[in-house]
Design a protein around this nucleic acid. Structure first.
Lengths: 344, 344
DNA sequence: GTGAAAGCGCTAACAA
DNA sequence: TTGTTAGCGCTTTCAC
């Protein structure tokens, strides 16, 4: 980190070169009114020639405005969040905004720390992606900080169902859960098992609600359906699949609550010599890029991740409304090769 | 973005509440020496109680130091860069650094814009990930800006071979290219084809150099090996595979120069009814997370992406040396199910 | 239309 | 050990 005073160009230098005052130079470069076009153009020309770039810190300190936004994700290495980030960065670049990204590891405490850091950085907006917690108290502290941030003029948008009192982009978790279950039921499956992540996450809870709706509508008691809870990862999917195979050998279809788990399920089935979709059908959720490249290609629910990222930033860029806005993101069941009618 | 002056807490408020001067409050919170532990603790307590967070802009303006770094990637939605970013964020969080990420889309002009933006943001360090260009002039402007940034006290680290005059983490592209080719040759393949990306990228050039070394060592004329150039993506891999199948039906092994292309190759082969590895072996490069989950699982060269990200930030955090440092990242051929001895 | 000057919130000399 | 004060580079009234 630079310690010694950096010898960079200041606006003062540009002003002197252009033979105008600091104020005029400032106005010229920020496009503020009250400067003749001729002078403004001259100043801009000088700035360009000198390679001047304004000091964002000074600018934001003096003007109280910030051209940067913060994005809080679980883990950027996870394709789900990488896609969301991609959407956010795209809009950010278009709007000339800097985007700061940070990890939470789904730990409310780290989340809080990161949010505080973003507030300290005086970002103009904060976007929280990733699942909320069913237990609102887990994010109570974050909520308090975000509310204070909003009162101070900051903007907040979340992706997913949170109890954070902010504009939200809502993935179709419940409807998607219902739709993918209907797809399985429509194929004739009656012995379905679910590979689930931690139920304390709203993402999981909502997807499960959808699953249960579809089950009930078909006259199946949700309580009769095995739901194996494991980590929301490949490894978790593998474990879940093994337990399902061992404890519920009659299962004809496994629904994994995200693609990562579905990939783990596929790998466990392969290892056990269970063929998909002949012996067991497998479905996922999210439609990460690789879902189509697996063999068999994965039937899943497509969530428009990148678009959700874009929407979230766009929401955050709007004037705040009196009540939190909600945008529903849509979903689509993508039927591929991993699901087929059951044999029996 | 907040327009109205935000009514946040200032250090002055904390100082008053604690009954000390601004300077003492500053020292207490930044851990500077010259304050009695008792007073420092009291100030910290007050700050905590009030929920005070220092204004980074004021801090960096006054102190000339910055606790943030910039990361320049091709596209964050690409798993290769997402993994690198994950490594950078991990170290960043540990060091209390904010990380700004931006896209270039492999366009030198956008890269330059983004670098300028980072400089304007007075980040302490800039990390440029992604391939360099064989033609140094394409990044000449970026180089000039980065050099100026370094002279002004900023730190720069690159991942990959660039002509940027900065510390570098070098993926084992050449050695890896040689090793994976040797793997194919070792299995007995003599009719190998390469699905390559644009040769203007150093990543591709280096991997090809390794491939050619191995070929030559085995007494095969590199010029006799078909190299199909296409986009460095799945779609590009698909196209390349189709051309290889059409124009060089005798091919027994296809080496794709990254996993993304390899996935496209696999998908094209599947569509054509060509079985892997029985009819044709396929190998990739990078070992992105899904490589192991494909069917057949993909033989590839593992590059420690997340670690490369960590290393790059660590390099950038060190004191600058008189001459650019180089860190070699290592590689490992991971033999999986997509390669086997040729039939014929 | 242009310039002078007062801060923005903080750090770092320099005094006490 | 503590306090006073002068900036950091910019935006923004307020005069002219």
């Amino acid at each position: 980190m630079p310690k010694e005073r950096t010898a960079t160009l200041r606006l003062q230098d540009v002003a002197e070169q252009a033979g105008v005052s600091l104020a005029t130079a400032s106005r010229s470069l920020s496009g503020a009114p009250g400067v003749s076009e001729a002078v403004a153009e001259r100043v801009r020309e000088v700035a360009r020639r000198l390679g001047y770039v304004a000091n964002v810190h000074a600018r934001s300190l003096a003007g109280g405005v910030s051209r940067s936004v913060g994005l809080v994700v679980h883990e950027i290495g996870d394709p789900y969040f990488a896609e969301i980030a991609s959407g956010v960065l795209r809009v950010g670049a278009r709007e000339g905004l800097t985007v700061q990204i940070c990890h939470t590891g789904r730990d409310p405490e780290r989340e809080l720390d990161q949010i505080r850091l973003l507030v300290a950085n005086r970002v103009g907006a904060i976007i929280v992606a990733g699942s909320g917690f069913v237990d609102a108290s887990k994010q109570a502290a974050a909520k308090a900080d975000l509310q204070a941030f909003q009162r101070a003029g900051g903007r907040v948008a979340v992706i997913g169902r949170h109890h954070l009192g902010a504009d939200a982009v809502l993935p179709d978790n419940q409807k998607g859960g219902r739709a993918i279950t209907e797809h399985l039921l429509g194929l004739g499956h009656r012995r379905i098992a679910v590979a689930s992540g931690a139920r304390e996450l709203t993402t999981i809870a909502d997807r499960m609600t959808g699953v249960e709706e579809a089950l009930t509508a078909e006259g199946i008691d949700p309580a009769s359906v095995p739901v194996v809870e494991a980590e929301f990862t490949r490894a978790g999917g593998r474990q879940a699949a093994e337990r399902i195979l061992d404890e519920h050998p009659e299962t004809t279809a496994i629904l994994a609550l995200n693609d990562d788990m579905a990939i783990g399920v596929l790998s466990a089935l392969r290892a056990r010599g269970v063929s998909v979709p002949e012996d067991v059908s497998v479905a996922g959720f999210d439609d990460v890029a690789v879902a189509q490249d697996l063999a068999p290609s994965l039937t899943t629910v497509r969530l428009p991740m990148a678009e959700m990222g874009e929407q979230a930033l766009l929401l955050a860029l709007k004037e705040p409304s009196s009540r939190p806005r909600r945008r529903h993101a849509g979903h689509e069941v993508v039927a591929r090769d991993s699901t087929a009618p059951p044999r029996r």
